[in-house]
């Protein structure tokens, strides 16, 4: 009997402990959902009383912050499309072609990319972008992000494509398809789940980045939301919690929507190869 009791107490203790950890992690999220609808929100957790949209009304009046959401969209979508397109083509070539030293190329790129997107290379990047005459443009942000994210994206995708049998494209070519047709008809649909992973990953990365747009952009009308969120701080540097909460919720929506869309449309599923 004591054995049973000990087992029960052990399990109960474990359940309590995990519930506690879960609660600790859930609290900020609950705040994140409640605070925007509370016109007197503070850093403490409180149930909105009354439930109000006044925070959002005020945020919407801040045209700089709202335009920034549009800028974030331009930069993230632009960067993501560039990364996805270039990474798919590059990793397909790296996986399928008999280029000597192609593994080394990917690894060296991967190594440098952590430097490029990191803050260590900020000064040279700034100088390059200035010389190129595209400072303070969306293009500069898109290009720098694409450069920084591409190697990792290529690395992920090349691994994915390596795992797909060549016989798919080979059978398409024997059936009469040109290499380009074989790529679009057969290879790309099979690779698509990997591309989707890269798209989500790149989008989230660019959407949440602060440093690069902060350094490369000057004019207020081009700043993305990650920078504009600082307009909800007072002159003294203290956050205006009510507005910050409402804006943060708006800011996170596109990413949530992207996840929901991808999960609905593709389900993060993989088509495996078919083998008897």
């Amino acid at each position: 009997m004591t054995d049973h009791l000990r087992q029960f107490l052990g399990r109960a203790g474990f359940a309590f402990f995990t519930a506690l950890i879960g609660a600790i992690f859930a609290l900020p999220l609950v705040w994140f959902l409640f605070a925007p609808f509370n016109s007197r929100a503070e850093l403490g957790l409180a149930i909105p009383e009354p439930f109000s949209l006044s925070n959002f009304r005020q945020v919407l009046e801040n045209s700089f912050a709202i335009r920034a959401l549009g800028n974030s969209l331009i930069q993230s979508v632009g960067g993501t499309l560039l990364v996805a397109l270039a990474a798919t083509l590059a990793s397909y070539a790296l996986s399928r072609s008999p280029l000597p030293g192609k593994r080394a190329v990917t690894y060296v790129l991967l190594l440098f990319s952590s430097v490029v997107s990191g803050s260590a290379a900020m000064v040279p990047i700034f100088l390059m972008i200035t010389r190129a005459g595209i400072i303070d443009t969306h293009l500069s942000v898109i290009l720098v992000f694409a450069g920084g994210l591409l190697p990792t994206a290529m690395f992920i995708l090349r691994d994915f494509i390596d795992g797909i049998p060549r016989s798919y494209e080979e059978s398409a070519m024997v059936a009469g398809a040109s290499p380009v047709q074989a790529f679009f008809d057969v290879a790309l649909p099979v690779i698509r789940p990997g591309v989707v992973v890269v798209v989500v990953w790149a989008f989230v990365n660019i959407w949440g980045s602060f440093l690069i747009p902060f350094i490369l952009l000057r004019s207020a009308e081009k700043m993305p939301a990650s920078v504009a969120i600082y307009s909800f701080y007072s002159e003294a540097g203290t956050p205006i919690v009510t507005l910050l909460a409402a804006y943060a919720l708006l800011y996170s929506l596109p990413v949530v929507l992207l996840y929901l869309f991808v999960s609905w449309k593709f389900g993060f599923r993989f088509f495996g190869g078919i083998k008897a």
């Binding site: 049998p165 016989s167 798919y168 059978s171 398409a172 024997v174 059936a175 057969v186 078919i274």
Partner: peptide, 14 residues
Amino acid sequence: GISMVFQDYALYPH
């Protein structure tokens, strides 16, 4: 002008 049957069949999964 050839046709080929592959060992793993290479049927397009999509």
